[in-house]
Amino acid sequence: MDKAIEIKNISLTIEGRSILEDVSFDVREAEIACLLGPSGCGKTTLLRSIAGLEIQDEGEVWVKGVLFSDLTHHLPVEQRHIGMVFQDYALFPHMNVRDNIVFGLKNYNTKMSIQRLDELVTLFSLEKHINKYPHSLSGGQQQRVALARAMAPRPGVLLLDEPFASLDIELREQIARELRLILKLDGITTIMVSHNQLEAFAMADIIGVMNDGHLLQWDNAFDLYHKPKTEVVAGFIGEGVFISGEVINNKEVKTEIGVIQSAATHQTVIGKKVRVLIRPDDILHDDNSDMAARVVDKAFRGAEFLYTLQLESGLRILSLVPSHHDHPINEPIGIRLEIDHLVIFDEK
């Protein structure tokens, strides 16, 4: 597939503070990408510089083979033909839903614009709200209007800045899945920005993890979780703890919870000190196991408990256990290791 968006070595400094440093990635046609990272990591700024609302100091932005900006040339925002949804939607308060949606359709004739409006209203189920003003809409409705407005002129790419941040937490994942369907149906190339990995997993084909102005990893959700390239990514994606270990051979690492075996090969010098990522799903509850750990904390998650367990050495690890195994705090329980993807980083 073609590259729809190419970001080449973008750096940006605002008032002496480095916001983006040498960020590069590609997004393919009709792909949904997500920039994921804690607040202040530069992801929104990156999105804004793709839109043209910020101007980078270095690097190039290409969209569909068109150079949007480089050192000397910056296509004005209004000529980039992008659609953008802002974090709080920024609907025009002085216009009703209809006028908000058709705002960008000034080059359409009346018939075409009515047709496009109808399509979007149907797509986002806004039939009942077409004459309402933004202040009388719920958060979810406002978001749909904002999306419809951004998509109305059939933009080349769609940029979404924290599209779910203003919604109720319970609704987020469901709406994210619905939105993904709509976007896929439309086949529009999308970049969204989020600090919430569950949203990112639900929405995106590909995710870029950002921290401190750097793009750390550009991968799909599975690989980010199971094959994080840096400790920061590993720490940010999913839950888990690092424990120390020593490489025995190319398939085994010795740790205080035993020798960990992995099918995956890894090239490491034997005898080298390393840190191993232990995910909660790597630790299984097994009453028959020799190894025991004491429950120090537990969180009920419906189907599972997330137990925080303390080993004799004082080391704490996490474990996901089916919720019919309800153990009180301080009770020792048996545990067993089962690791498919061994994630190892060098000891610093």
């Binding site: 839109a51 004005p76 209004e78 000529q79 980039r80 659609g83 802002f86 025009f92 960008g104 407005r149």
Partner: peptide
């Protein structure tokens, strides 16, 4: 709010269009 002005620009309004509309 600057946001609504930025939205208008992403929707194809130039500076004057954003001002007017």
């Amino acid at each position: 709010s600057v946001c609504v002005l930025e939205v208008s620009r992403t929707l194809g309004c130039n500076a004057f269009g954003g001002f007017r509309r």
